[in-house]
Design a protein around this nucleic acid. Structure first.
Lengths: 120, 120
DNA sequence: AGTTTATTCAACCCAGGGGTTGACAACGGC
DNA sequence: GCCGTTGTCAACCCCTGGGTTGAATAAACT
């Protein structure tokens, strides 16, 4: 579901096990078996997690003999950081602007003017 | 599930509708009704989405008459960006180091030395 | 007090996610 | 050629997530 790339990346990283895998893959490539070892789940489950990460573009696998070493693809992170930064900045700017407004009118709390209050 | 904060944030943003809400809230606070208007889902569904965003710490609601204006809390973004940047940097550094290694040994492809090959 | 407006709560439905086990495919080693 | 290793596919189970509808709460308006 939610076929778009950004959703897939966020969704992939919403799982602590998968985040941990990413963390470990940042240090070094690894095989499925190696990745599975620390967790007490089946290798199949880990394989599924890897598929999720792969579909999100976070990871690539190169066939090498019967091993399938897993490699972290860090570029996809940009997709997220760009999205996040965009709205973070927007929100911060809005906050700053609000500050300005408040500073500019130090008096007008909420009190509507007693008459002719058509200032929507 | 996955009670940890980071999982909640990633999970919250894994939904396109919720990301769109965040995008709109970056521009201005809004009420539930206002937020619901563009989407063709029930107001209840939107209310649920907001609960998810709130549990993730991405938005806050202040009671004001019978309205519950929704406000974006951008600080939580830091949680994600920190996580992401950490592993992105690590991965990039590793990549750089690999480059160095490859540049340092321009000859040794894969070919193991024909004898006394105990160099694991 | 009664009605309207704004929002949430509760119960339910269905699809998908994460887990399992068991069988299968693809290789390298002997 | 056969066996062991490595990984995936398939079927299944259970639970959560997003959606629905209907009722309940809360506050303003009249």
């Amino acid at each position: 579901m939610a076929a778009d790339a950004l959703s897939r990346v966020f969704s992939a990283l919403a799982d602590p096990t998968r985040r941990d895998m990413v963390a470990r893959l940042a240090v070094a490539d690894a095989t499925v078996g190696e990745l599975a070892e620390p967790y007490d789940v089946s290798v199949q489950a880990v394989s599924k997690h890897l598929k999720v990460l792969e579909d999100a573009g976070l990871v690539s696998r190169s066939r090498e003999a019967q091993r399938r070493p897993v490699h972290l693809e860090a570029e996809v992170f940009d997709l997220m950081t760009k999205w996040i930064e965009r709205y973070r900045r927007q929100a911060e700017e809005r906050y700053r602007r609000l500050d300005d407004v408040l500073r500019a009118m130090p008096d007008a709390d909420d009190v509507p003017p007693p008459q002719t209050g058509a200032t929507s």
